[in-house]
Amino acid sequence: MNEIIETILAHRSIRKFKDKPLDDETVETLVQCAQAASTSSYQQVCTIIGVEDREKKEKLAELAGNQSYVADNGYFFVFCMDYNRHKIAADMNTIDIHKTIQSTEAFIVGTADAALAAQNLCIAAESLGLGIVYIGGIRNQLQEVSALLDCPDHVLPLFGVAVGYPDAEPGKKPRLPMAAVFHKNQYQNSEETEALLDQYEKETAAYYTERTGGKRTEGWVTQITASMATPKRTYMKEFVRSKGLNKL
């Protein structure tokens, strides 16, 4: 097993960072790694906003649900789907690409591009001994986040990534059994899935019980189904369309 695989398999989310900012060279290296990610048809639909201003970071922390580590970290990145750049390119060549930008396919491409870029950045950060945590909470109040970051039409902030020097050693969360997520040749929808989930419920319940000293005892099945019982961020459909995306 090489060092890259060891780094990937050792991943865990860090939510407490030392009060030590990343230097400019490290930030630029991480962004270069993000840009090196695969991108659909060379479209490069991802834009990364590095938030350095302390007041903006504190506001983002508030908008994300009062998550302190959004403000207290070495650096905070916001990954955006960005078709504004493509619109400018189209205008330069007097070509109308509005229908393409508004398509569901374009929305999937932009989301995938941003996710691939972010994961490259995160693996690079962890290879340097840094810790990371993804922040989906910026979508709690995306109108305010978009305004705070001055995002024009066709630019949609998708998630944040806090990076920094770890000041905690959290346990590694167990993942689903491989048999539950890796299917050969076709989707395997069988009775075995329930047995695998029952096994995983017990494993994750034991993990949380040990990690919290008994304050949390629920497993993954209980946790996830409870969290999905009520839809979240239901405003997103209309907001995304108001940005000129995912209309067709």
Rank of each mutant, 00 (worst) to 15 (best):
A124L: 08
T100K: 10
D24I: 08
A90I: 01
C122N: 05
F79M: 00
D113K: 05
P21G: 06
S38I: 04
L148N: 02
I48M: 05
Y134G: 11
A64P: 05
S103G: 03
L22P: 01
Y69Q: 11
S127M: 11
L116F: 08
L148Q: 05
E55T: 14
N140H: 04
D72F: 02
G110F: 01
V31Q: 05
Q44G: 07
L63P: 00
Q32G: 05
C46F: 01
E52D: 11
V51F: 09
L142H: 01
F107I: 07
F76E: 00
A118C: 00
T26W: 11
G50Q: 10
L149Y: 03
A61T: 00
F79S: 06
S41Y: 11
V145Q: 01
G136M: 10
M81Y: 03
I95K: 15
D150W: 03
N73P: 12
C122Y: 00
A115T: 13
C80G: 02
E126C: 10
D72R: 11
Q143M: 07
Q32E: 11
G50V: 15
A71G: 06
T26I: 15
Y42E: 13
F77G: 01
I135H: 00
Y42K: 11
I132K: 03
Q119A: 04
K99I: 05
S38K: 02
Q43H: 09
K57S: 08
K87E: 08
A124G: 06
N84R: 11
V78G: 06
E52L: 08
Y83H: 04
V70G: 00
Y69W: 14
V133A: 04
Y75R: 15
S68A: 15
K99T: 13
A124W: 04
E25G: 13
N73W: 01
A71V: 03
I132E: 05
D24W: 08
Q35K: 14
E55Y: 02
S146K: 02
F79R: 09
L63K: 08
R85Y: 06
I135L: 04
E144N: 09
A117N: 06
T26L: 12
R85T: 01
I95E: 09
I108S: 08
L148R: 10
E55H: 07
G131K: 03
C33T: 04
R85A: 05
A106H: 05
D96E: 05
Y75C: 09
Q102H: 11
Y134D: 07
L148V: 03
R54F: 09
Y69V: 00
G110Y: 01
